[in-house]
Amino acid sequence: MSTPAETPSGSGAAGPEPEGEPAAALPDVAPQLRALRRRRGLTLEAAAQRAGLSPAHLSRLETGRRQPSLPMLLGLARIYGTTVSELLGEVTPERDPVVRGGLAEPAEADGWVYRQAGGPGRAMQALRVQVPYATRSDLVRVHPGEEWLYVLDGRVRLALGEAVHVLDPGDSAHFDSLTPHRIAAATRGGAELLFVHTLMQSAAADLCLGAGAHRR
C-alpha cells in the first residue's frame, strides 16, 4: 500500500503540463524512475515539485501509464543526479576511473581549447580549458545544469546576470547555468581553468564551447 507521500494528490499544478509520450514510445522507464527517486530520498510530491510536474502526473510516469518526453527525462535525470541512459535502463561498460593527461586529445572551438579531465557519459563532466582573450565565443549562455570553474592561470571575467566578477588564479565559482552567464579571459595572454558541468549526456564541445568544435 502506498504511503501518503506516494499517493497522487490531484493535479497539484496551476496550469496544464505536457502529457509525455504514449506508453509504447520509449523503453519502460517506470521502474527506474521510482527506484531513483526513492534512492534520492524524495517523496512523490517533492520530486514532482522540483520537476515542474503534478504528483499525479509523476505517479503516472512511475506506473507506466505515461512515458516521459525527452525534456522530462532530462529534467528528472538532473534532479536524481544521474544520466538519461540510466533512466532508460541502459547498461554502460565499466569505465576506467583514471584519465591520463598525456592521452587527453585537445579539441578547439573559436579559439577555446579544452581537454577531457573526466570520463565521458557521466552526469558530471570535467574539462581543462584554455580561454583566449577575445573571441566570438564570448556570448551569453543559458541552459539547464550547474557549472563550477577554478582558475589555474591568468584572470577570468565571469558575468552572472547583471554582476561581473574578475577571478584570479586560485579563485573559483559555482553557479546555476540557468543564470545568464559569460566566461572570458581578462588577460591578453588568455587564461586556463578547470571546468565542471552537469549537462546531462551532452557533448562538451556543443554546450560549453559551441557547435563548431573540432579535434586538433
Rank of each mutant, 00 (worst) to 15 (best):
D206G: 00
G89T: 03
L103R: 02
P55N: 00
M200V: 15
D110C: 02
G170F: 06
P8F: 12
V164R: 14
A163G: 06
P93E: 10
A213C: 05
R78C: 00
I183W: 03
R136Y: 04
I183E: 01
R215D: 05
T63C: 08
V142G: 02
G10W: 07
D96N: 15
A46L: 04
G111F: 07
L149E: 05
R34L: 14
A213P: 04
R215K: 04
V151I: 04
L167E: 03
G64D: 02
G81K: 05
P169I: 11
A109V: 04
G170H: 06
A109Q: 08
L193I: 15
P93V: 05
L76Y: 03
S59E: 10
P144E: 09
H181P: 06
V129R: 01
L193H: 02
F195K: 07
R215Y: 14
S177A: 14
Q125E: 12
G101A: 13
L103P: 00
E21G: 00
A134H: 01
Q116D: 13
G81V: 00
G15F: 08
H197W: 01
V166T: 15
S54V: 12
P132H: 03
L167F: 06
A30M: 09
A159H: 07
A51S: 06
E192H: 06
E192N: 04
A173W: 08
G64I: 05
A117R: 09
L178I: 03
G20V: 05
P16A: 09
H197I: 14
G212I: 02
L87F: 10
E105I: 13
R188T: 15
R182Q: 14
D168A: 15
G111D: 09
L209Q: 05
A46N: 13
R100Y: 12
G15I: 12
R78W: 00
Y80Q: 11
R37M: 06
P97W: 00
P27N: 08
P27A: 11
V142L: 10
S69D: 07
V156Q: 01
E147M: 07
D168F: 01
R115F: 01
D138N: 14
A213G: 07
P18H: 11
F195Q: 12
V196Q: 10
R155Q: 14
P68A: 09
T83M: 05
L158E: 02
L207E: 09
F195S: 03
G119T: 15
M72K: 01
V29L: 12
V29S: 09
R128A: 10
D176W: 02
D153M: 05
G64L: 02
G15Y: 10
L70Y: 12
G118H: 12
P144C: 03
A117T: 03
P106M: 11
S11W: 09
A109D: 08
P4G: 05
A159G: 07
I183G: 01
A35E: 14
S137M: 14
Y114G: 07
A47L: 11
A109P: 10
D138I: 03
V166Q: 10
A126I: 13
A186R: 13
E105C: 06
V99L: 06
L74G: 08
H143L: 12
P132Y: 05
A24N: 14
E192L: 08
R39V: 02
A186E: 13
H165L: 15
A205T: 13
R188V: 15
V91A: 12
V164F: 04
P68Q: 10
G119E: 07
E94W: 09
T3W: 07
V113Y: 04
V156K: 05
I183R: 05
V140K: 00
T43A: 00
R141S: 14
S69F: 03
